[in-house]
């Protein structure tokens, strides 16, 4: 044994980051969008009341679960659209919207303004709450 100090440091820092990671991922945070996101920007139709824009990438494990969840949420909401965007193919948009990891889900109101954002696989009830606030 040379030294256990590096292991202790690495595991301590990684645990601190991991706890933050677990807590922050999937949480819907309120946003006050500054500019309108249009159908041509995301390449899909906006919902009449709200739109869930999901940014995905190839090396992303929770993107699949996120797609299934959001498809499921919008299935019985005809006024809400789910649009999945391949972040890799839309780097300009990714920079513009400051997307840093996948999956990132933006919640847009009827005008295309971002009102909420979740990084990581979103929590179902939080998405539902955000949508309920927009659709009422």
């Amino acid at each position: 044994m040379k030294s256990l100090l590096p292991i202790v440091i690495v595991l301590t820092l990684a645990t601190a980051y991991g706890l933050w990671y677990q807590r922050s991922r999937g949480t819907v945070k309120a946003k006050a969008g500054q500019s309108f996101i249009t159908e041509s920007m995301i390449g899909g139709a906006l919902g009449s009341k709200a739109t869930l824009v999901q940014f995905s990438s190839a090396f992303c494990t929770p993107c699949r679960a996120t797609r299934v969840l959001l498809e499921n949420i919008v299935a019985d909401m005809p006024d809400v659209a789910h649009v999945e965007v391949d972040a890799e193919a839309q780097l300009e948009l990714v920079r513009q919207l400051n997307i840093v990891s996948t999956p990132t889900t933006l919640i847009l109101d009827s005008q295309g303004l971002e009102v909420g954002r979740a990084v990581g696989a979103p929590k179902r009830e939080q998405v539902n709450n955000a949508l309920a606030a927009i659709r009422k």
Binding site: R67, V74, D86
Partner: peptide
């Protein structure tokens, strides 16, 4: 309504 765009399956 779900639209999947540019997705490499």
């Amino acid at each position: 309504m779900t639209q999947i765009l540019n997705e490499k399956k």
